[in-house]
Amino acid sequence: MPDEPLVLGIETSCDETGIGIVRGHTLLADALASSVEQHARFGGVVPEVASRAHLEALVPTMQRALDEAKVTLADIDAIAVTSGPGLAGALLVGVAAAKGYAVAADKPLYGVNHLAAHVAVDTLEHGPLPEPAIAMLVSGGHSSLLLVDDLTNGVKPLGATIDDAAGEAFDKVARLLGLGFPGGPIIDRTAGNGSASIAFPRGLTAAKDLAAHRFDFSFSGLKTAVARWVEARQRDGEPVPIADVSASFQEAVCDVLTAKAIDACLTHGVRTLVIGGGVAANSRLRVLAEERAAKHGIEVRVPRPQLCTDNGAMVAALGSRLVAAGVAPSRLDLPADSAMPLTSVSVAG
């Protein structure tokens, strides 16, 4: 359908420089440059290192995206950029570049919400999203449960982590086990050779916590419990069963995430659960979510792993929906907002 808008998306909220191009719901290009290796020795993303890398990577990544989609900037109908939430300095590089492209090529500019973009990306793989839907976003930077009534108009946060993000917990436990960074994929692989035989705590699931934190998460206590368990084994001079610890830790995280996500679906009478963010790539999370959702007739939609982690395609996907819905573009004084609330899916002009 040539009438569908051709939208460019720019993502620089954390350590991935992403440029995506979509036409309607069709993904044409998804170019990515990551600074993850530069952060590895620090055990987490260093904002200034990420910002420097974004500035270096932007122009070449844009060129790769345009080449891949076989279009020029003149062909683009609108430019969408993550304007928040995220690392302030990193966001600003993408927003400034998006403005440069918008001014030079005379295109409308949409500042969009990173979390809403994580939800929108699913449309590239599974088509239009049935609404309302529950979205669970789990990554190194965020862990949220959202009620999506109309993605172009606002998303209602139901709950979020009260301490570490889910991905952060994976990173910290991986470091504790000497497995490297980022922790998610390594723990997933290591857990495959072990069994979830150790009973680690499930944060905010006790009856007394559920009253105030029904849809919130907490992973800090779990991380501490893993550390204590490991230290006790070492103190006793016993070998640490890395695979079993990984599997048990992963099981505790996935158990809480999926239980709360399904609970959110049932509570709000919603039959669609979308999972996004880097942790959505976790193999156990996918299996457990499918298993539990099936019992209640809930459909689980998880985009393929490359689309779950931060990328430009997700921003373009949300931009495409905003253009199609006739939402007003942002103004050129669009700020980068590191704490952008979910009530604003895009920054209207």
Binding site: L55, G89, A97, G100, Y101, A104
Partner: peptide
């Protein structure tokens, strides 16, 4: 100061590329 400095450079680079 880095954060502000990068605004001008990202804008200049993107405009140069677009044009």
């Amino acid at each position: 100061p880095f954060t502000g400095l990068r605004v001008g450079l990202a804008t200049a680079a993107s405009m140069g590329q677009a044009l």
